[in-house]
Every structure is written in C-alpha cells, then in structure tokens.
Amino acid sequence: MAMSREDILQQVQEILIDALGVDDDEVSLEATLMGDLGAESIDFLDIVFRLEKAFSIKIPREELFPAENLMNNPEFVSNGKLTETGLNEIREKLPHTDLSEFEKDPDLNKLGDLFTVNAIVNFVDNRLNAA
C-alpha cells in the first residue's frame, strides 16, 4: 500500500497524541519521544501496537526500538558511551534514524533522543513504500 509521507506523518501524529496524551502542536518531526513527549517504556509498546493496527504491518519490538538489548551489552557500551561496535550495531539497527549528531558524543543518556517522530515516520515509510 503506497502512502505519502504527509499521510503517514498525520497518522503517526494522531497515534502519538492518543498514546502519550500530548497536544498536536507538540508532535513536531524533531520532537523526541522520551525527552519532549514524555514516553515511558510501556508507551513504546503501546505505540508499536497502534502502528501495527493503523498501517496493517507487523513490527518486531526490537526493530523499531532496539535500545534495551544494546544498553545491557558490555561489547556495545563502555563508560556510559557506545563503543564503535555499539555504534555500528545501532547504525545497522536504525537505518531510518539520523545518527550524525549522536555519533559526535554517543552518550547512553542521549540514546532516548534518537527516537524522534521523524524516525517513526521514516520507519513506516520504509515499510510501506520500499520496493
């Protein structure tokens, strides 16, 4: 099913407004789910379920929000920062996310900032419109 990015964005915004109880003007493309919109871990699952329903797709939890496995693996994390191996892992896992800012200072605490509204739209766009 082909959908334009605007249509996807609009649906994603509605989902986030419902799931997180935020106002529509808060859900900008750059807004981070945890920092700006106050999402907690259970909300990520809620959002995944809602996305699956709205777009009729199946989303393995690890695929959209793979942070948990990463944080618990000493190979990927050292001194509270991601190692080069960890960065490679996240590049591979999050092809739909812009990592250029994060790579300059891959602090674990900033991992939450990677999950933006834009990243979700990219993910869904990839899923629906990839050839």
């Binding site: 259970i42 699952l45 809620d46 995944v48 379920f49 699956e52 329903k53 939890r61």
Partner: peptide
C-alpha cells in the same frame, strides 16, 4: 484483546 505480543498486551 486488541494486540498480544510476548512482552505485553493491549
């Protein structure tokens, strides 16, 4: 049940 996954349900 709207959605059921290994780690949660909606």
């Amino acid at each position: 049940i709207e959605s059921l996954a290994p780690e949660a349900a909606s």
